[in-house]
Design a protein around this nucleic acid. Structure first.
Lengths: 336, 336
DNA sequence: AGAGGCAACGAAATCGATTTCGTATTTTTC
DNA sequence: GAAAAATACGAAATCGATTTCGTTGCCTCT
C-alpha cells in the first residue's frame, strides 16, 4: 500500500504538502501539485478511508435498515424497487450504501451502536419490526433518518397517497355501477394497510354509503395465499360474492382472482377486482389487473432527497409524513 | 463520543489497559476487566471503526458489485433473491454488506480503487458489464471474489446446472410425445443463455434429433416483451407453431404464452410451454407454468460460503465454475 | 536468600491521513 | 527602497484505536 509518505519521499517534500496537493488546496503551488498528482498516479496511490475518516468524520455512507425478521425479503419488488432508485440517487452524489447490521465480527451491536461505530451519515429504514427495542434508540438518536411506507413515530416518512388511490379505485367501481364493494385489506399491522382501510371507509362515507363490516376481511399477509384465504372468508361471511372487490395489494388481488376462478366465478363478468401496487406482471396476467400504481421511482428519489437534505442540514427533522407520493389508477381487464 | 481515553481517565489506568480489557486480553486481571467493562457500558462507549481498522486492517465488510449499466435492477427477483440469502449468511458471521461504488464524495474511483480505499475483504459480483474496462483490473487484483450466473473469466463462479435443467425440460416434453421442440433462448450475451442453448443442442443430439435452426430464436432480453416478440418471430420463421416451446426464462415463457393467446392458440392444448426460473407467480398464472426451478437459496449460500473460504484462505482461487447448483423440474399446467 | 518466572500494567510507537501554525521567501504597496 | 502582505511550504499535533516492549511486584523453587 502506497501512502502519502511514500509520495512525499519521492517528491522530496513533506507529507503535509502531499496531502494538500491531493486535496487541491491553494496552499501549494501549481507546479508542485502537478508533480505530486503525477507521482501519485504513477505509484498507484489510493487513499486510506480509515485514516481519512479518523480525522474528518463524515463518512459518505448511508445505512439501509432492512430487517429480515419480518417476512419481507429483498425479493419484494416494492422495496427492492425503492431501494434501487434510492441507491442510484445517493451513489451519484458520492455516497456509499451499506446495510445496517447487528454484528461486527464476533461482537453484537445495536443498530445505533453500529451506526456510530461506522460513522454512518444517515439511514433509510425500509422494513423494520416496529416493536424492536433497538429501533427507538436509533430513531431518537438524532442521526438523519427517513423511512418509506411506514408508520414510525418521529421519523420523516415518504409514502404513497393511499387515500387518493383508494378513492380513485372505489369511485371507478362506483362509476361502473357497483353498489356493494368489498375490501380485502392488507395485514393491519402494516401502516399502509390501515390507511387503505381508512380510505375505504372514508370514501364510502363521502358517498353516503354505510360501511358493512361483513364486506371487509383482513389478509394475513401481502401475498397470494393470504388473498385466496381472505376471499374464501369473504364469501363465507356474505354467503356469496359482492359485485366488486378492492384489494390492498396486487398479490392479494391475484390470489383472490385465482380463488374466484377455482370456485367457477368469472372476473370481471361476475365480479370486478382492483389491486394496489401495479407490479409489472399484472399487465400479463389473465385477466390483466386493474390496479392503483405506486410510483416506486418517485418514492425512492424523494426519500433520497429528503435524507440528503437532512444530512446537509438544509432541512430539519419533521416527524411524520413529509411527502405523499401521487398514485395512478391503471385500468385493465379485471374490472368491467 | 466517548473514547478509551475517557474510560482510562475514570478507571485510573492507561488507555492500553482499557483496550486490552475491551478485547478480553489475558494481560489484564479479571477484576480490572469487569470494572472497565462496566464503565464502558455506563459511559456508552462505542468503538471507532476507523481508528480500529487503521491498525488492524481486515474490515469485516464485503462489497456487492451490482452494476446498473445493464438493464437489470435490484428488482430482478433472481438476483435479489440470491443477494438476500448471501446477505443473511455473511451477516450472521459478522460481515457488513455494502455496495461497491465508483465515487466517494466528489472523487471518482475505479472498482478496485474503491475496494482498496474501503479495505473491502471480498466481493460478490452479481451483475456487471463484462466489457467494463475496470472489471478486469478488479478480478485480477487478488482480492477474494466470487460471482454467480456469469461467465467471467478467472472468477470462481456459482451457477445453476443449466445443462441438467435443459435436459430435464426437453426430455419431459419428448416423453409427452413432442417431436419438434422450439427454443426461445435468452439474450446470447448472457452466459446462462448460451449454456441453455448449448444444452438444447446437446440434448437433441443425444436423442439423435437434428437441430433445426429455424426452431431457435433469441429473445432480446429476459422479459415479457422479448418473449412476445420472439414468439412472433418463431411463428414467422416456421409458418406455424411447433408442438412445444422451451423458453430460457419464465418471463420469456409468459410473454410467449400471452402472444400465443392473442393469436388464438391454446396452451397447453395447441402447444406446450416450459420456462426457467420458477419465479413465485408462475404458480398463479393461467395456465400455471411448468418450469425449471433455480435454487436461489443454495446459490446465494454457496456463493457466501465460497467467498468466506477465500477470505479465510481456506481455499485458493479456482477460476471458473466451482459449483453447479442442481435444478428441479416443476410440472404444472402449461404442458400437456 | 537469591535466581528465575509469571502476572498485571503503562509508556510509547504505530496505522495514514488532515490540519494548524510558524517561517522563509516572494510579491505588492506607498 | 522599506514596510506590509501574500505565497509556499514544513514541523508537529491530532484523530482513536492496537500492539510491542519494558517495568514492577510477587510468587515459586532450590
Amino acid at each position: 500500500m502506497v501512502t502519502i509518505y511514500d509520495i512525499a519521499k519521492r517528491a522530496g517534500c513533506a507529507s503535509s504538502t502531499v496531502s494538500k496537493a491531493l486535496n487541491n488546496s491553494n496552499q501549494v503551488s501549481k507546479k508542485r501539485k502537478e508533480e505530486i498528482l503525477a507521482l501519485a498516479k504513477e505509484m498507484g496511490y489510493v487513499p486510506n478511508s480509515n485514516a481519512r475518516l479518523l480525522k474528518t468524520k463524515n463518512s459518505w455512507s448511508i445505512g439501509i435498515l432492512f430487517s429480515e425478521d419480518l417476512n419481507i425479503g429483498l425479493e419484494h419488488h416494492f422495496f427492492s424497487g425503492i431501494l434501487q432508485e434510492f441507491k442510484s440517487y445517493v451513489e451519484a452524489l458520492g455516497y456509499e450504501v451499506t446495510f445496517v447490521s447487528k454484528k461486527v465480527g464476533a461482537q453484537s451491536l445495536t443498530y445505533l451502536e453500529w451506526c456510530k461505530y461506522k460513522n454512518i451519515d444517515g439511514v433509510l429504514i425500509l422494513t423494520v419490526d416496529e416493536d424492536d427495542v433497538n429501533l427507538k434508540e436509533l430513531t431518537e438518536s438524532g442521526i438523519p433518518i427517513v423511512t418509506v411506507d411506514n408508520g414510525l413515530i418521529n421519523v420523516p416518512t415518504i409514502i404513497s397517497d393511499n387515500f387518493q388511490g383508494t378513492r380513485m379505485a372505489l369511485e371507478y367501481l362506483m362509476l361502473k355501477g357497483a353498489k356493494h364493494i368489498a375490501h380485502i385489506s392488507g395485514p393491519l399491522r402494516s401502516f399502509s394497510a390501515k390507511e387503505r382501510l381508512q380510505g375505504y371507509k372514508d370514501t364510502l362515507e363521502k358517498h353516503a354509503i354505510g360501511v358493512d363490516e361483513k364486506l371487509i376481511v383482513e389478509a394475513y399477509n401481502y401475498d397470494y395465499k393470504s388473498g385466496k384465504n381472505a376471499l374464501l372468508q369473504l364469501i363465507k361471511q356474505n354467503k356469496g360474492i359482492p359485485e366488486a372487490i378492492y384489494a390492498a395489494s396486487d398479490d392479494i388481488a391475484l390470489g383472490a382472482i385465482i380463488a374466484l376462478r377455482e370456485l367457477g366465478f368469472k372476473v370481471p363478468n361476475d365480479v370486478s377486482v382492483i389491486g394496489f401496487d401495479n407490479i409489472e406482471l399484472t399487465r400479463y396476467t389473465s385477466p390483466s389487473l386493474t390496479t392503483v400504481s405506486q410510483n416506486k421511482v418517485m418514492i425512492g428519489t424523494e426519500a433520497a432527497k429528503h435524507l440528503i437534505a437532512l444530512i446537509n442540514k438544509e432541512t430539519h427533522i419533521a416527524p411524520g409524513i413529509v411527502k405523499r407520493v401521487p398514485v395512478e389508477l391503471i385500468i385493465r381487464e379485471s374490472t368491467k
